[in-house]
């Protein structure tokens, strides 16, 4: 999960740099026409250059596929030649993956995992942002709770599994509770931080126009902190996946984590590998969805700082 997100990050950076170069060229020929400040308009780009840039933009993501394709092919070939108990042939793993997870063998195990992940993550986001706002806007509350938070936050979420089991049992409530506990902190702290570092001019503007509190909160404070909130949410997403799988391994009787542990205990190495492949795919898809949402929410931010006028 984490290696995947790093790879995507690098890839995007490469793409962004390239975009910058193509965009950079525009102010040059637009400069004089800026007399009364016209926009840098993409439509004024010469056609050929625009086509070239578009082709490059479409091809660039494919560069990131080179290593995975090579690695999977190598794995496929190497594992097919040797038969090791711990590393079954990839073709076998793939067959097993299709039968277990796609054709119904254990498809039912996916849902408890996804459900607690989604519910827990959503709740962590809501709780994190709410308290983050409270702490940022009410310094007195913050001073009151800050030491407690620093202490509670220092307790590793997984160490609380026994406590949560005693309090909430071994059902979905425990998983959701632990996901919230693990994932809430980056969101909460980033929200507080993002709001605190709000630009003074923006704050003065909101006050001098006497915006109602809800307009100030939803149209000024939260959007201005959204880049930091999204960064926190991204970290929390990885934490949520780790916590839900680990919890399932320790306490649950269902879910992908539980499947993985049972497969390992029954020396079903092929089954275990198929579970790992599934987790890789789920983690990757979650990341893709997150990035799509992030691109939408932070479009203004990217455009402002990367000079992309789209």
């Amino acid at each position: 999960m984490s290696t995947q997100s790093v790879r995507i990050g690098l890839l995007k950076e490469g793409g962004a740099v390239d975009d910058l170069q193509t965009v950079d060229a525009e102010p040059g020929h637009d400069g004089d026409a800026l007399a009364d400040g016209l926009l840098i308009q993409p439509d004024r780009e010469p056609d050929a250059r625009r086509r070239g840039a578009r082709a490059r933009r479409m091809l660039l993501p494919l560069v990131g596929l080179i290593i995975p394709v090579v690695a999977i092919t190598a794995w496929w070939i190497v594992s097919a030649q040797k038969s090791s108990f711990y590393f079954p042939p990839l073709s076998t793993i793939w067959d097993r993956f299709v039968h277990t997870w796609l054709l119904g063998g254990a498809t039912a195990e996916i849902w408890p995992t996804l459900l607690s992940l989604v519910l827990g993550y959503a709740a962590a986001t809501l709780v994190g942002i709410t308290f983050g706002v409270l702490f940022a806007l009410l310094p007195a509350v913050n001073r009151f709770f800050a030491p407690v938070i620093e202490f509670v936050r220092a307790v590793p979420g997984l160490a609380l599994i026994p406590l949560f089991v005693i309090a909430l049992g071994v059902g979905i409530e425990t998983k959701i509770g632990l996901v919230i506990f693990g994932a809430v902190w980056p969101i909460l702290l980033n929200t507080t931080d993002g709001i605190r570092s709000q630009d003074l001019t923006i704050r003065d503007t909101a006050f001098s126009y006497r915006l109602r509190f809800r307009d100030r909160l939803f149209r000024v404070i939260l959007p201005s902190a959204s880049p930091q909130i999204m960064a926190g949410m991204k970290v929390s997403l990885s934490i949520a996946v780790i916590v839900v799988i680990a919890t399932e391994m320790v306490v649950s009787t269902s879910g992908i984590g539980n499947f993985l542990l049972k497969a390992q205990a029954g020396f079903d190495l092929t089954g275990m590998w198929s579970g790992l492949v599934l987790m890789g795919i789920i983690g990757y898809l979650l990341n893709v969805i997150f990035e799509l949402v992030e691109r939408r929410v932070l479009r203004w931010h990217r455009a402002m700082y990367e000079g992309i006028n789209r």
């Binding site: 630009d199 001019t201 923006i202 503007t205 001098s208 126009y209 931010h301 402002m304």
Partner: peptide, 22 residues
């Protein structure tokens, strides 16, 4: 004691007084 209702302020730093997300 608070910003008067019938008063508007134009800031020196216009680029930061407009909300870039709107």
């Amino acid at each position: 004691t608070a910003p008067p209702e019938r008063l508007a302020l134009v800031f020196q730093d216009y680029s930061r007084s407009l909300m870039p997300w709107m």
